[in-house]
Design a protein around this nucleic acid. Structure first.
Length: 775
DNA sequence: GTATTATCTAAGTCT
DNA sequence: TAGATAATAC
């Protein structure tokens, strides 16, 4: 370990306030960090500074909200001080760090260390089962509503027992026509316990229980963690607040970093109050305010400030910058959402060609994931490389979840959701009727479904052949189970794939394009597991066996945004504004600025909700470094039918001085009469005073079209593109990356190509689905 | 028990 | 539109 920097040199890279914040290491502090003010820089330098002062890396806990932020932070600390020490810092998301602690201490709470973490789909499926067993209508007891209610109870540390004793809560449920919500909460928690499983909220809830009921355990961790740092503090909920408070109570070396103006997770229980709480908890709290923005141009900062000023609830502060004035923020509009996509694509085409920037400098941000489709199609038409974050990720695919469910079951046979998912996959003749009987039998005897199947199947009253099939299934799982700690993850995974018959089934189903994709996806998962087993082995630490449970712990809280393959390469990034928090891009497009979309229709009924939407807009704007584009469409497809839309109220709040208004919405009123795209629909009916010009800048538009058309590869329909896929061509695949075409068989969209990818070897791809881009 | 077809309905952001 | 569930036929 040889520090590359001395402490002094390290601190010289900070401005005065940043430096003070970093140097204040003994005692509680809060850093209010405006957008782009070097927040991550301060946290990483503080960790590095602590290490240089001789702190044990194991004594530092740094909590973030996303794995991505955690990884980025770790990399930056490694760069500052050399990596061996940085690797030992407890740096991760709230959920992953406390899942780790919960596994270590699981037996205190009546779980095993191999408990399963249920994702949202598992929770929903479990909830549906409970509603069915209670014969409650899922029309009245909406799965999402009930789960939302349970979730908010848990984040406020209200157990199901307390819930059922709380007259206020019961009253609310009663008046909402859902008097059995409390009972359902109890049944839900009991099911989780029986399944040796926790949902996302339980990870925080149970950590609180652990620290509350086992003071000696709490004390142990209080002594270990001398320094606790929390990123994005404005987005913590009560459960998180209390964990942090308890952990830090012994040493009081707590650093929280946040910005109330960027609080966008109130819907998930985040509580701004936590900022006030911490001031109350630590009367000698030292506060640092970072207000200088190093990221954006003056125009962008000014526009962002003009928006956030409209919020009543905020700690007054204003970010400022010494950066240049820059271009004005561009506002344009289009007739439809598809046209919006086209316009964005053309603007990107223009920016790339004129400003000579690469595609990875550009992001398109939207309010909802559903908006990505129109954008995606438009980008593809102009051959603009892009990557979508969020939405359907690799780990959400059916075939992947199926195999993972087998893994889960082998690790934790009590995992009922996994069991139900795979018991009849491939088909074993175990249908719904048998399972219903078994569930009733298990409930009556107070045992788990797994125990009913594996231990008392004779008593369940099933037809002989069915009982035998079920018993054989449990025997197969048990046999695999014996080996799960002895073999490495890859060996185990392939064995499970084989023994279950799943691989064979998928192999046989490769008769259409989707079948081939499914098989390839599973292959990719197995390759990934192999990589997992190979990496980190042979390093200086003692080589531990990378077992399947270790792999599963690693990916349990993995999300699409963490995908390492997606980090690099020259691609336009598409994501929700929520996902963009903490990121920055030179060019940012914020699309769909329409009423009922942004602000969301769900959030226009109270000032609090509306202010959160406004903060969201503020977050979006402040992602931009050089230039920001805003757009809205006058018509948008929703559930297949066209709906007219009005421009967002937020657009009227923009300070026009810093806007280049191509839409005519906020500057000059239109002189031409309003032209409706559909004569019978009144589009702007509610906004008589401010009428928009109907069309965007036509001359510009036409020119863009010419540029687009002059490009040989972007001249229109997809079939033209297929012609370019010939042996020898270098292509780009969304997941496999760069590759070389070896051979092509067939014609047009249905043709199959064999492509060699550097990282994945030879793949046979159907052109229609492969979406290959010519490089 | 399984495969196919018809019907219904969803509002959103994330670990 | 699309995905999930219910109904129907085999």
């Amino acid at each position: 370990m040889s520090p590359q920097y001395t402490t002094m040199a390290l601190l010289d890279e900070l401005n005065q306030v940043q430096r003070q914040a970093v140097e204040y290491t003994d005692g509680p502090s809060m850093i209010i960090a405006g957008a782009g003010s070097g927040k991550t820089r301060v946290i990483t330098y503080k960790i590095a500074h602590l290490l240089e002062k001789g702190a044990n890396p194991f004594s530092i806990m740094a909590l973030t909200f996303t794995n991505k932020a955690a990884r980025e932070m770790r990399e930056r600390v490694e760069k500052l001080i050399g990596n061996t020490e940085a690797r030992s810092v407890w740096l991760g998301t709230f959920h992953s760090i406390f899942a780790r602690i919960l596994r270590q201490e699981a037996e205190h709470l009546g779980f095993t260390k191999h408990f399963t973490i249920y994702d949202t789909d598992d929770s929903k499926s479990l909830m549906r089962n409970i509603l069915r067993s209670q014969e409650l209508s899922d029309k009245i007891y909406k799965v999402n509503t009930i789960l939302g209610r349970i979730s908010s109870a848990k984040t406020n540390l209200i157990s199901h027992i307390e819930y059922n004793n709380n007259q206020d809560l019961l009253q609310v449920d009663y008046q909402a026509g859902r008097p059995k919500t409390g009972l359902i909460y109890t049944l839900y928690q009991e099911s989780l316990k029986k399944a040796n499983a926790m949902d996302f909220d339980d990870l925080l809830f149970n950590t609180n229980i652990l620290f509350r009921d086992f003071p000696e355990v709490l004390y142990k961790y209080q002594k270990i963690f001398k320094y606790v740092l929390v990123d994005e503090y404005q987005d913590t909920n009560y459960a998180q607040y209390l964990i942090v408070k308890k952990l830090a109570a012994h040493n009081e070396n707590i650093t929280v970093v946040g910005d109330d103006a960027q609080s966008i997770y109130a819907f998930r229980g985040a509580n701004i109050q936590n900022i006030l709480n911490i001031e109350r908890d630590y009367p000698d709290l030292k506060t640092f305010k970072l207000e200088q923005n190093y990221r954006s141009t003056q125009n962008i900062v000014n526009v962002a400030n003009s928006i956030i000023e409209k919020n009543k609830n905020q700690f007054r502060k204003k970010i400022w910058t010494e950066n240049g004035e820059g271009d004005k923020v561009v506002l344009f509009n289009t007739t439809t959402d598809n046209e919006e996509g086209n316009m964005v694509a053309r603007h990107i085409f223009d920016v790339v060609n004129k400003e000579r920037v690469t595609h990875d400098k550009i992001a398109i941000l939207y309010r909802t994931n559903a908006q990505s489709r129109a954008l995606e199609e438009a980008l593809r038409r102009l051959n603009i490389p892009y990557k979508i974050f969020g939405g359907m990720s690799f780990y959400k695919r059916k075939e992947i979840k199926d195999l993972l469910a087998y893994f889960r079951l082998v690790i934790n046979p009590l995992d009922q959701e996994a069991l139900l998912r795979v018991i009849n996959l491939p088909k074993r003749g175990i249908g719904a009727t048998s399972l219903d009987k078994l569930k009733i039998f298990a409930d009556q005897n107070g045992i788990s479904l797994w125990d009913a199947m594996s231990k008392r199947i004779r008593e369940a009253g099933l037809p002989g052949p069915t009982a035998i099939k079920i018993f054989e299934f449990t025997q197969m799982i048990e046999a695999l189970r014996i080996e799960v700690e002895k073999k490495d993850a890859f060996e185990m995974a392939t064995e499970i794939g084989k023994a279950s018959g799943l691989m064979q089934m998928l192999y046989q189903e490769r008769n259409d394009d989707e079948g081939i994709m499914r098989f390839e996806n599973v292959e990719e998962l197995l390759n990934g597991i192999q990589d997992f087993c190979l990496t980190e082995l042979g390093e200086e630490e003692e080589p531990t066996l990378k077992t399947l449970p270790v792999f599963m712990e690693d990916i349990a809280l993995y999300t699409d945004a963490d995908d390492k393959d997606k980090q690099d390469g020259e691609f336009v990034s598409l994501m929700t504004i929520h996902a963009a928090k903490g990121l920055e891009f030179p060019y940012v497009f914020i699309v769909g600025l329409e009423e009922n979309l942004f602000p969301s229709i769900m959030a226009i009924n109270s000032r609090e909700e509306l202010e959160e939407e406004r903060r969201l807009f503020y977050v979006a704007l402040t992602r931009g470094e050089k230039k920001v584009f805003l757009s809205f469409a006058r018509m948008r497809y929703k559930y297949g039918s066209a709906m007219s839309s009005e421009p967002s109220r937020f657009l009227m709040e923009l300070n026009a001085d810093f806007i280049q208004d191509d839409s005519g919405l906020i500057t000059e009123p239109a002189d031409e009469p309003l032209i409706d795209f559909e004569p019978n629909k009144k589009v702007w009916s509610n906004k008589p005073a401010r009428r928009p010009i109907t069309n965007p800048d036509k001359s510009r538009l036409k020119k863009m079209e010419e540029i687009a058309k002059s490009e040989p590869t972007s001249s229109g329909n997809q079939s033209a593109d297929y012609k370019d896929i010939v042996p020898g061509a270098v292509v780009q695949h969304q997941r496999f990356g760069k590759g070389k075409v070896l051979s092509v068989e067939g014609l047009g969209a249905d043709a199959k190509a064999v492509v060699f990818f550097n990282n994945f070897g030879n793949k046979t791809l159907i052109l229609r689905f492969a979406r290959l881009d010519i490089l």
